[in-house]
Write a protein that binds this DNA or RNA. Sequence first.
DNA 1: GGTAATTTTTAGATTTGTCTAAATCTTATT
DNA 2: AATAAGATTTAGACAAATCTAAAAATTACC
Lengths: 219, 219
Amino acid sequence: MNFSITEENYIKAIYHLQQVDENVTTNELAAELNTKAASVTDMLKKLKAKKLVNYEKYQGFRLSTEGKKIALGVIRKHRLWEFFLVEKLQFGWDEVHEVAEELEHITSKKLIEKLDAFLEYPKFDPHGDPIPDSHGRMAAQKQINLLDLPVNEPAEIVSVGSQSTELLELLKHKNLGIGTTIEVKKRFAFDHSMEVKMKGQSAFIISQQLAQALFVRTI
Amino acid sequence: MNFSITEENYIKAIYHLQQVDENVTTNELAAELNTKAASVTDMLKKLKAKKLVNYEKYQGFRLSTEGKKIALGVIRKHRLWEFFLVEKLQFGWDEVHEVAEELEHITSKKLIEKLDAFLEYPKFDPHGDPIPDSHGRMAAQKQINLLDLPVNEPAEIVSVGSQSTELLELLKHKNLGIGTTIEVKKRFAFDHSMEVKMKGQSAFIISQQLAQALFVRTI
DNA sequence: GGTAATTTTTAGATTTGTCTAAATCTTATT
DNA sequence: AATAAGATTTAGACAAATCTAAAAATTACC
C-alpha cells in the first residue's frame, strides 16, 4: 500500500515519540508536528482505519507492527539520503536534515536499494544514528548520555539528540561533532554544567542542555 | 517563489507542448496530463495570477519568460537525476523516467548544484536530451528525425521522441539505444517503413512509428 | 451568415489536510 | 465525590486540486 507524505510524517513522528514513551498522546504529537490537536485526531482516525496505529479515543496511541515497519522504511530512506549528501555531495552534516526530509518520501523501492548498494551499505548516518536495513533491522547503539559519562573517561560522540539548526549551529561553533573524542573533567551541581576537554585543546564549559543532547560511547 | 508539485508539472507540460506548437490549447494540455479540460482551466487561472503564463480565455496560452525559467529549472533537475540514476546507480536508461518525475520536485537549490558538480556537469541525459545549466541554457541538439536520414549515411541515435514504456520496451527488444550507430538501407513508400542496419548485424525492418520516434546525428 | 459541432469555461461537488471554537472526556485536587 | 483544569474530540469551515454536468464561446460547414 502507498501512503501520503503527510501520513508518512505522522508515522515517523509517532515512532520517534515512542522511543521516549511507548504511549503517545495527541498533544505531544501536535507539538512534534507543529500542528493542532484537532488535526492530529483527524489523522489518527485515518491511520487507525489503515491499521497503522492502535488507537482508542482519549487513551493515547502507538504504532501497530505494520506501522512500525512503515516508520523504519521512512527512517531508512532518510538516513541513507543523509549519508549520500554528506559522503558524496560534500554537504556539511549539519545541513542535510531538511533536504533528507524531502528525499525520504520518494517512493521507488528499487531506488533505495540501489542507493544503499552505491553507498556500500552504510550502518550509521552522519549524525551517528543507525540505518535500518531493508528488513527494518538496525545496529543497536550502546550509547550513553554525556550527562552520565564518568569523569576522566575519554568517549566518542556518536549521536546528537536533535536535528534543530540551533543545536547544530552551537556544535559547529564549539567544533563538536560525530566522532569527536571528549572527556568530562568536572561537574557543577548547581546548574549541571560541566567542564569538558578535547584532545590537544584547553578545557571549556558546556551547559546541561547541551550535554543532554550529546550521546557518547566510551573508548 | 515556490510552486506546488502540480503547478510544476503543468508548467513542464506546457513547455513540452510549446516545442511543437507555440500556442497551447486547453484540450492538448488536459490530454498531456491525463486530466480534464475543466481542471486545466482552473489551474491556468492560478498560473496566470502568478504571471507564469500568458492566457486569455478561449485563446490558448503560452509560458511567460518567468514560466519558461521555471520549466527549465524543473527539466534541469529531471535530467540531472536521470543521469545520476543511470551513471551512478546503474539503472537502465529505460527505467529512470518515473523516478526522476518524483526527484525533479525536490526543492533544494544547493542540492542540485552539488549534484551537478558530483556528476561533473553532464551536458546530455541518458536519453540524449540536453541538460540546461543553472542559468537555463542548454546545448542545441542538431539532430534530425530518422525518417529524414538519407540512405547509406551512418548516424548515431541521440534522442528518443517519448519516454513511454511501450517505446522503451521495443527499443530494448531491438537493441537500439542512445549512441547506437545505424544506417538506412531502403525505404518503403507504401507504409513508410524502412530497412536499417547496425554495424556487424544483419539488416531489419522498422515501422514508420518507430522511425519517427528516433532522432539521429550523422557521423 | 446561420446553425452544428467542438472547445472551453463556469458552477457546484468531492477529497485531503488543515484550522478555530465548542463540546466532551479524563485527571487532579480538595 | 464534586469540581476545576487540562486534554481530546467533534462540528463546521477553508484551501488546493480534482471531477461531472451544464453553459458559453469559437470554429467549421453548408
